[in-house]
Design a binder for these strands. Structure first.
Lengths: 142, 142
DNA sequence: AACTATTAATTGTATATACAAATATTAAAA
DNA sequence: TTTTAATATTTGTATATACAATTAATAGTT
């Protein structure tokens, strides 16, 4: 069923969700090569770029709730990809060497994902679409 | 954090998800008046419009998997909003009278949601955005 | 008619995510 | 300095969703 043929095709709720699910799937395919879910991968990349990042900061950047970030970090800890160092109420998250070693492969997965959707949408439309979605997201209430 | 300031702001995965989460929240607010989650409400509206609809058809239109539809129907059954009638391998889903009575209020919730986002985005941008998202969704592989 | 393949729906299980409450910890105010 | 308020994180719990396996029924094929 094409979404443009659905009875729901005029509804932002429906369209935004359907799109997100499909994009998630496409991304999951790219990240599968290193056996990681996209959300884990994005969090890990952020920690690799910014070692010691705090859960609250990560939550802000990823626009996810702190509790979700805690749960994602737990998973990454189980995989020995990050460690937490708590001091007082502050927690810092650091990448392990295992994660650092994985970095090039992660880059490759990300590139693969970009390539995949640019191939489908074209460079211009991809960029425009992402920009529009961000603009829309920013306009919606927190 | 504005998504346009995030390190992830160029990534379709991130943008699509962040948008969907915010839209979900906005919709949930509208549907809260009748104590229903948006996904339940949309499924129920489809069944009200098309009594006897089959789970497979619903899955297609809503672009969700059959198993998810089964789970949603179970919830709606618990709430006495729908009943299932199975004959052979076919299942038909019918709205209860309770659901039919609720219909006007559901319409109102939907209108409220539309109004809410049109107010934020403007009519034209809303329509254009939804169309673009549908187009994009249709282009991505199933 | 008997076997095989396809189809529709469901169930078992796992993941992502959120909200609300709880737990510390630090900062501010009295 | 004691009390109060604010902040950062985690936990308990609930929901939505998916995938893979299962069940049941129908359709096709020989």
């Amino acid at each position: 069923m094409k979404s443009s043929n659905s009875r729901f095709n005029k509804c932002l709720y429906f369209s935004a969700n359907a799109l997100a699910r499909k994009v998630e799937k496409l991304a999951a395919e790219s990240w599968k090569k290193i056996g990681m879910a996209p959300s884990h991968a994005y969090l890990l990349m952020m920690v690799l770029d910014e070692p010691g990042a705090q859960p609250g900061t990560i939550a802000n950047e990823m626009q996810l709730t702190p509790s979700t970030i805690t749960r994602l970090i737990e998973k990454l800890e189980e995989k020995k990809m990050v460690v937490r160092a708590s001091e007082g109420k502050i927690t810092n998250v650091y990448p392990t060497s295992k994660a650092k070693e994985l970095y090039p492969k992660m880059k490759a997965c990300l590139d693969d994902f970009y390539k995949k959707y640019v191939e489908i949408l074209g460079t211009d439309e991809s960029i425009r679409m992402v920009q529009n979605m961000n603009k829309l997201t920013d306009k919606l209430p927190v």
